[in-house]
Design a protein around this nucleic acid. Structure first.
Lengths: 156, 156
DNA sequence: ACTGTTCCCGTTGACGCCCATATAGCCCCA
DNA sequence: TGGGGCTATATGGGCGTCAACGGGAACAGT
């Protein structure tokens, strides 16, 4: 399977390196990503990491904004100017730079979370908190929806 | 028969493995599932396990949302971040990882429950409790009472 | 020269592969 | 029809492989 799926927490060693989960590495390879590109999430202390096609997604988002507005310029600045490339060493590890630490609050451990076409890096406790919120939002959504929808409904 | 039906309880061995019931394995094979996709239920301590079409269904549902809204992000977070692939060993066993244990409370035994197009994994006593509640809800319905009345216990 | 990065090696623990055993159900055959 | 053996399933365990991780040494940039 070549989608980023599931999550894992790995430790950062004394030299500031962390192993990217083996499953994610194989996805990276099967997708033919030569390098990984990381972008800071706007309102969330997480990094989105993926191939260069990750940029396409963000550029599509920018395209929805009025190019004369400040928002579009801010977004463009953010996406194009505030990203970084991550390089694997021979053991499949990347080094956790200040670029990563500042935005995420990561110190000693990194939580990797699959997101389909990309994955995220989190500080584990912040991930847990955010996950609980996301879950609560989905539950509210489900209770507000009419039962008997087709595609996404759980048989219950 | 091509559906996941009936239920069984199997033991987890010292290495953290558990046999998937042979009947379920034959359904898996007849459906041509190469690997199993597992996802945590939102508000119930159980895992839904099925083929890739289960994942496809969820992703199709996500595709209906505006990809830049919170809801789409929450759904992807849930489907991809709270999902995982399970691999059979050659004897038809899967290993019970922390991913499974955390959400379900499974420790020494696993209850497998057929649900038609997928099956579920439960901690046996929680399954029994949930089954009793479900039965009670159905009974109240038949008697013309409102479901979820004051006598109902919360899932635990 | 110093600091940070990259390469390479060793250790440890988890997991997959393979084989063994026990038990229960089934079939065959006398 | 009763008994014996065969088979399939669940389960246990030995062992090799690989991923995560730690650390020494080579290397490069300042």
């Amino acid at each position: 399977m070549n989608r980023f799926l599931s999550s894992a927490v790995n430790r950062i060693d004394a030299k500031g390196r962390v192993s990217v989960p083996a499953h994610f590495r194989s996805v990276v390879q099967s997708r033919g990503y030569a390098e990984l590109y990381a972008i800071r999430q706007l309102d969330i202390p997480a990094l989105d990491v993926g191939g260069l096609d990750l940029l396409d997604r963000y550029e599509a988002r920018i395209g929805l904004e009025d190019p004369f507005m400040q928002t579009a310029d801010d977004m463009s600045f953010f996406v194009h100017g505030d990203g970084a490339f991550l390089k694997f060493d021979q053991d499949g590890r990347i080094s956790v730079t200040d670029f990563i630490r500042e935005h995420t609050g990561i110190t000693t451990e990194v939580a990797f979370v699959g997101r389909g076409d990309f994955f995220q890096m989190w500080e584990p406790s912040k991930l847990a908190a955010y996950g609980a919120q996301a879950r609560a939002r989905l539950l509210r959504l489900r209770q507000g929806m009419k039962p008997g929808g087709e595609t996404g409904e759980q048989p219950e």
